[in-house]
Amino acid sequence: MIDLSQTSSQTAQKSSTRKPFSLGKTTLTVVSVLTYMFLYIPIIILVLYSFTTDAFGARLTGFTLSWYEQLWRDQRLMGATLNTLYVAFVSMIVSTIIGTMTALALERFRFRGRAVYDAFLYLPVVIPEIVMALSLLAFFSFAFNLIRQLTGIQLRNGLATVIISHIAFSISFVVIVVRASLRGFDQRMEEAAYDLGANSWQTFWRITFPLILPGIIGGGLLAFTISLDDFIISFFTTGPGTSLLPVEVYSQVKRAVTPKINAISTLMLAVSMTLVVLSQVVQRPRT
Protein backbone atom coordinates (compact mmCIF):
# COMPACT_ATOMS: atom_id res chain seq x y z
CA MET A 1 0.00 0.00 0.00
CA ILE A 2 2.67 2.45 1.11
CA ASP A 3 4.83 1.61 -1.86
CA LEU A 4 1.93 2.11 -4.21
CA SER A 5 1.07 5.54 -2.91
CA GLN A 6 4.72 6.56 -3.03
CA THR A 7 5.11 5.55 -6.62
CA SER A 8 1.94 7.31 -7.58
CA SER A 9 3.06 10.51 -5.87
CA GLN A 10 6.44 10.15 -7.58
CA THR A 11 4.80 9.87 -10.97
CA ALA A 12 2.70 12.86 -10.01
CA GLN A 13 5.86 14.81 -9.28
CA LYS A 14 7.42 13.65 -12.52
CA SER A 15 4.50 14.87 -14.57
CA SER A 16 4.97 18.06 -12.49
CA THR A 17 2.19 20.01 -14.19
CA ARG A 18 -0.25 18.74 -11.56
CA LYS A 19 -0.22 19.63 -7.88
CA PRO A 20 -2.18 17.76 -5.18
CA PHE A 21 -5.79 18.73 -5.53
CA SER A 22 -7.03 21.89 -3.87
CA LEU A 23 -9.98 24.10 -4.67
CA GLY A 24 -7.79 27.11 -5.40
CA LYS A 25 -6.36 27.59 -1.92
CA THR A 26 -5.69 31.30 -2.31
CA THR A 27 -9.15 32.17 -3.59
CA LEU A 28 -10.68 30.03 -0.89
CA THR A 29 -8.68 31.76 1.83
CA VAL A 30 -9.51 35.24 0.56
CA VAL A 31 -13.22 34.44 0.30
CA SER A 32 -13.21 32.90 3.76
CA VAL A 33 -11.40 35.84 5.34
CA LEU A 34 -13.96 38.19 3.76
CA THR A 35 -16.78 36.02 5.12
CA TYR A 36 -15.28 36.13 8.60
CA MET A 37 -15.05 39.91 8.27
CA PHE A 38 -18.71 40.02 7.26
CA LEU A 39 -19.51 37.98 10.36
CA TYR A 40 -17.40 40.02 12.77
CA ILE A 41 -17.46 43.66 11.69
CA PRO A 42 -21.06 44.23 12.86
CA ILE A 43 -20.21 42.69 16.22
CA ILE A 44 -17.05 44.75 16.62
CA ILE A 45 -19.01 47.90 15.83
CA LEU A 46 -21.69 46.87 18.29
CA VAL A 47 -19.10 46.47 21.06
CA LEU A 48 -17.21 49.68 20.20
CA TYR A 49 -20.38 51.75 20.21
CA SER A 50 -21.32 50.52 23.66
CA PHE A 51 -18.54 52.77 24.98
CA THR A 52 -19.43 55.90 23.02
CA THR A 53 -20.52 59.09 24.70
CA ASP A 54 -22.90 59.87 21.82
CA ALA A 55 -26.42 59.33 23.16
CA PHE A 56 -27.71 58.34 19.70
CA GLY A 57 -25.10 55.62 19.34
CA ALA A 58 -24.13 56.80 15.89
CA ARG A 59 -20.67 58.32 16.43
CA LEU A 60 -17.59 57.45 18.45
CA THR A 61 -17.34 60.76 20.30
CA GLY A 62 -15.57 59.58 23.42
CA PHE A 63 -15.15 56.78 25.90
CA THR A 64 -17.56 56.12 28.74
CA LEU A 65 -18.78 53.25 30.87
CA SER A 66 -21.97 55.02 31.88
CA TRP A 67 -24.16 52.81 29.69
CA TYR A 68 -23.02 49.77 31.64
CA GLU A 69 -23.73 51.54 34.91
CA GLN A 70 -27.25 52.23 33.67
CA LEU A 71 -27.71 48.53 32.95
CA TRP A 72 -27.01 47.55 36.52
CA ARG A 73 -29.61 49.98 37.73
CA ASP A 74 -32.19 48.68 35.24
CA GLN A 75 -33.98 46.07 37.33
CA ARG A 76 -36.23 45.00 34.46
CA LEU A 77 -33.34 44.27 32.14
CA MET A 78 -31.38 42.39 34.79
CA GLY A 79 -34.39 40.27 35.71
CA ALA A 80 -35.02 39.51 32.06
CA THR A 81 -31.39 38.44 31.61
CA LEU A 82 -31.57 36.00 34.50
CA ASN A 83 -34.86 34.61 33.21
CA THR A 84 -33.36 34.02 29.77
CA LEU A 85 -30.29 32.21 31.09
CA TYR A 86 -32.46 30.07 33.35
CA VAL A 87 -34.81 29.12 30.52
CA ALA A 88 -31.90 28.30 28.18
CA PHE A 89 -30.21 26.12 30.79
CA VAL A 90 -33.28 24.06 31.70
CA SER A 91 -34.28 23.72 28.08
CA MET A 92 -30.78 22.57 27.11
CA ILE A 93 -30.61 19.88 29.80
CA VAL A 94 -34.06 18.43 29.13
CA SER A 95 -33.92 18.55 25.35
CA THR A 96 -30.40 17.09 25.22
CA ILE A 97 -31.42 14.10 27.34
CA ILE A 98 -34.67 13.49 25.46
CA GLY A 99 -33.02 14.13 22.10
CA THR A 100 -30.13 11.74 22.74
CA MET A 101 -32.53 9.00 23.84
CA THR A 102 -34.64 9.50 20.75
CA ALA A 103 -31.59 9.48 18.48
CA LEU A 104 -30.41 6.19 20.01
CA ALA A 105 -33.82 4.59 19.52
CA LEU A 106 -33.96 5.65 15.89
CA GLU A 107 -30.38 4.73 14.98
CA ARG A 108 -29.92 1.48 16.89
CA PHE A 109 -33.33 -0.18 16.96
CA ARG A 110 -35.93 -1.32 14.48
CA PHE A 111 -39.49 -0.88 15.72
CA ARG A 112 -42.99 -0.44 14.40
CA GLY A 113 -43.82 3.16 13.47
CA ARG A 114 -40.14 4.07 13.30
CA ALA A 115 -40.35 5.66 9.85
CA VAL A 116 -43.44 7.67 10.82
CA TYR A 117 -41.82 8.89 14.03
CA ASP A 118 -38.68 9.77 12.11
CA ALA A 119 -40.67 11.97 9.74
CA PHE A 120 -42.69 13.44 12.63
CA LEU A 121 -39.45 14.48 14.35
CA TYR A 122 -38.49 16.65 11.41
CA LEU A 123 -41.73 18.62 11.65
CA PRO A 124 -40.63 21.07 14.38
CA VAL A 125 -37.58 21.91 12.24
CA VAL A 126 -39.59 22.17 9.07
CA ILE A 127 -42.49 24.15 10.43
CA PRO A 128 -41.91 27.90 10.56
CA GLU A 129 -41.10 28.99 14.08
CA ILE A 130 -43.85 31.59 14.10
CA VAL A 131 -46.51 28.98 13.32
CA MET A 132 -45.28 26.90 16.23
CA ALA A 133 -45.21 29.95 18.49
CA LEU A 134 -48.76 30.98 17.57
CA SER A 135 -50.07 27.44 17.93
CA LEU A 136 -48.51 27.23 21.40
CA LEU A 137 -50.07 30.57 22.32
CA ALA A 138 -53.47 29.27 21.22
CA PHE A 139 -52.86 25.90 22.89
CA PHE A 140 -51.91 27.33 26.29
CA SER A 141 -54.87 29.70 26.30
CA PHE A 142 -57.15 26.81 25.30
CA ALA A 143 -55.66 24.42 27.88
CA PHE A 144 -55.72 27.01 30.67
CA ASN A 145 -59.36 27.77 29.91
CA LEU A 146 -60.16 24.10 30.14
CA ILE A 147 -58.26 23.75 33.43
CA ARG A 148 -60.09 26.74 34.89
CA GLN A 149 -63.47 25.31 33.94
CA LEU A 150 -62.60 21.91 35.41
CA THR A 151 -60.78 22.92 38.59
CA GLY A 152 -61.29 26.64 39.03
CA ILE A 153 -57.52 27.25 38.99
CA GLN A 154 -56.37 30.02 36.68
CA LEU A 155 -52.94 29.29 35.20
CA ARG A 156 -51.02 31.96 33.32
CA ASN A 157 -48.23 32.05 30.77
CA GLY A 158 -44.82 32.54 32.30
CA LEU A 159 -41.39 30.97 32.49
CA ALA A 160 -42.82 27.44 32.59
CA THR A 161 -44.69 27.87 29.32
CA VAL A 162 -41.56 29.33 27.67
CA ILE A 163 -39.40 26.43 28.88
CA ILE A 164 -41.94 23.82 27.75
CA SER A 165 -42.10 25.44 24.33
CA HIS A 166 -38.32 25.79 23.95
CA ILE A 167 -37.85 22.11 24.77
CA ALA A 168 -40.48 21.08 22.22
CA PHE A 169 -38.65 23.17 19.64
CA SER A 170 -35.11 22.01 20.51
CA ILE A 171 -35.56 18.22 20.75
CA SER A 172 -35.53 17.68 16.99
CA PHE A 173 -32.35 19.71 16.56
CA VAL A 174 -30.57 17.64 19.20
CA VAL A 175 -31.80 14.44 17.54
CA ILE A 176 -30.42 15.52 14.16
CA VAL A 177 -26.98 16.38 15.56
CA VAL A 178 -26.67 13.27 17.76
CA ARG A 179 -27.88 10.97 14.99
CA ALA A 180 -25.22 12.31 12.68
CA SER A 181 -22.52 11.37 15.18
CA LEU A 182 -24.12 7.96 15.80
CA ARG A 183 -23.94 7.29 12.09
CA GLY A 184 -20.44 8.69 11.81
CA PHE A 185 -18.58 6.07 13.82
CA ASP A 186 -17.63 2.49 13.20
CA GLN A 187 -20.49 0.36 14.52
CA ARG A 188 -18.23 -2.67 14.66
CA MET A 189 -16.85 -1.20 17.89
CA GLU A 190 -20.25 -1.67 19.50
CA GLU A 191 -20.46 -5.20 18.09
CA ALA A 192 -16.99 -5.94 19.44
CA ALA A 193 -18.08 -4.79 22.90
CA TYR A 194 -21.11 -7.10 22.75
CA ASP A 195 -18.91 -9.96 21.56
CA LEU A 196 -16.61 -9.40 24.53
CA GLY A 197 -19.57 -9.82 26.87
CA ALA A 198 -20.64 -6.27 27.59
CA ASN A 199 -24.36 -5.67 27.99
CA SER A 200 -26.10 -2.83 26.20
CA TRP A 201 -25.86 -0.49 29.21
CA GLN A 202 -22.08 -1.02 29.49
CA THR A 203 -21.66 -0.78 25.74
CA PHE A 204 -23.49 2.54 25.71
CA TRP A 205 -21.51 4.16 28.53
CA ARG A 206 -18.09 2.70 27.65
CA ILE A 207 -18.18 2.78 23.85
CA THR A 208 -21.07 4.70 22.35
CA PHE A 209 -21.30 7.60 24.78
CA PRO A 210 -17.61 8.65 24.67
CA LEU A 211 -17.66 8.41 20.88
CA ILE A 212 -20.80 10.46 20.39
CA LEU A 213 -20.04 12.89 23.23
CA PRO A 214 -18.93 15.61 20.81
CA GLY A 215 -22.26 15.14 19.07
CA ILE A 216 -24.18 15.32 22.35
CA ILE A 217 -22.29 18.43 23.41
CA GLY A 218 -22.86 19.88 19.95
CA GLY A 219 -26.57 19.12 20.23
CA GLY A 220 -26.69 20.58 23.73
CA LEU A 221 -24.92 23.75 22.62
CA LEU A 222 -27.32 24.06 19.72
CA ALA A 223 -30.29 23.68 22.10
CA PHE A 224 -28.82 26.28 24.44
CA THR A 225 -28.15 28.66 21.59
CA ILE A 226 -31.62 28.19 20.16
CA SER A 227 -33.18 28.99 23.51
CA LEU A 228 -30.89 31.95 24.22
CA ASP A 229 -31.38 33.28 20.72
CA ASP A 230 -35.07 32.67 20.55
CA PHE A 231 -37.29 35.67 20.35
CA ILE A 232 -40.35 34.49 18.45
CA ILE A 233 -41.49 31.61 20.67
CA SER A 234 -40.56 33.52 23.85
CA PHE A 235 -42.45 36.58 22.64
CA PHE A 236 -45.69 34.66 22.17
CA THR A 237 -45.52 32.19 25.07
CA THR A 238 -44.36 34.43 27.91
CA GLY A 239 -46.80 36.09 30.26
CA PRO A 240 -47.30 39.78 31.04
CA GLY A 241 -45.32 39.63 34.31
CA THR A 242 -42.31 37.67 33.02
CA SER A 243 -39.87 39.37 30.71
CA LEU A 244 -37.16 37.66 28.72
CA LEU A 245 -34.11 39.48 27.46
CA PRO A 246 -34.86 39.23 23.72
CA VAL A 247 -38.41 40.44 24.30
CA GLU A 248 -37.15 43.32 26.43
CA VAL A 249 -34.45 44.27 23.90
CA TYR A 250 -37.00 44.14 21.09
CA SER A 251 -39.31 46.59 22.80
CA GLN A 252 -36.38 48.92 23.54
CA VAL A 253 -35.00 48.73 20.00
CA LYS A 254 -38.45 49.56 18.64
CA ARG A 255 -38.41 52.73 20.76
CA ALA A 256 -34.91 54.03 19.99
CA VAL A 257 -31.32 53.07 19.17
CA THR A 258 -29.23 53.78 22.28
CA PRO A 259 -25.76 52.64 23.41
CA LYS A 260 -27.46 51.03 26.39
CA ILE A 261 -28.72 48.26 24.09
CA ASN A 262 -25.16 47.92 22.76
CA ALA A 263 -23.99 47.51 26.34
CA ILE A 264 -26.42 44.70 27.15
CA SER A 265 -25.61 43.07 23.81
CA THR A 266 -21.90 43.23 24.59
CA LEU A 267 -22.50 41.55 27.93
CA MET A 268 -24.54 38.80 26.25
CA LEU A 269 -21.69 38.34 23.82
CA ALA A 270 -19.17 38.05 26.65
CA VAL A 271 -21.29 35.42 28.39
CA SER A 272 -21.66 33.44 25.17
CA MET A 273 -17.94 33.53 24.44
CA THR A 274 -17.10 32.40 27.96
CA LEU A 275 -19.50 29.50 27.52
CA VAL A 276 -17.99 28.56 24.18
CA VAL A 277 -14.48 28.51 25.63
CA LEU A 278 -15.73 26.58 28.66
CA SER A 279 -17.38 23.94 26.51
CA GLN A 280 -14.14 23.58 24.57
CA VAL A 281 -12.14 23.07 27.74
CA VAL A 282 -14.65 20.49 29.00
CA GLN A 283 -14.62 18.68 25.68
CA ARG A 284 -10.85 18.46 25.24
CA PRO A 285 -9.68 15.80 27.74
CA ARG A 286 -12.42 13.41 26.64
CA THR A 287 -11.81 13.50 22.92
Binding site: L46, G57, L269, M273, L275
Partner: peptide, 28 residues
Protein backbone atom coordinates in the same frame (compact mmCIF):
# COMPACT_ATOMS: atom_id res chain seq x y z
CA UNK B 1 -15.88 26.43 13.26
CA UNK B 2 -16.35 28.14 16.59
CA UNK B 3 -15.57 31.45 14.96
CA UNK B 4 -18.61 30.83 12.74
CA UNK B 5 -20.63 29.89 15.79
CA UNK B 6 -19.77 32.85 17.99
CA UNK B 7 -21.83 35.44 16.07
CA UNK B 8 -24.55 32.81 16.02
CA UNK B 9 -24.41 32.67 19.80
CA UNK B 10 -25.32 36.30 20.06
CA UNK B 11 -28.98 36.99 20.05
CA UNK B 12 -30.71 37.24 16.70
CA UNK B 13 -32.17 40.60 17.69
CA UNK B 14 -28.74 41.86 18.69
CA UNK B 15 -27.34 40.88 15.32
CA UNK B 16 -30.18 42.60 13.53
CA UNK B 17 -29.68 45.61 15.75
CA UNK B 18 -25.97 45.69 14.80
CA UNK B 19 -27.04 46.15 11.20
CA UNK B 20 -29.42 48.92 12.20
CA UNK B 21 -26.40 50.81 13.56
CA UNK B 22 -24.47 50.23 10.35
CA UNK B 23 -27.27 50.93 7.89
CA UNK B 24 -29.10 53.80 9.58
CA UNK B 25 -29.10 57.25 8.02
CA UNK B 26 -26.23 58.52 10.16
CA UNK B 27 -24.65 55.07 10.47
CA UNK B 28 -21.28 53.68 9.45
Amino acid sequence: LFMVLIPFWTNFLVRTYAWMIILQNNGL
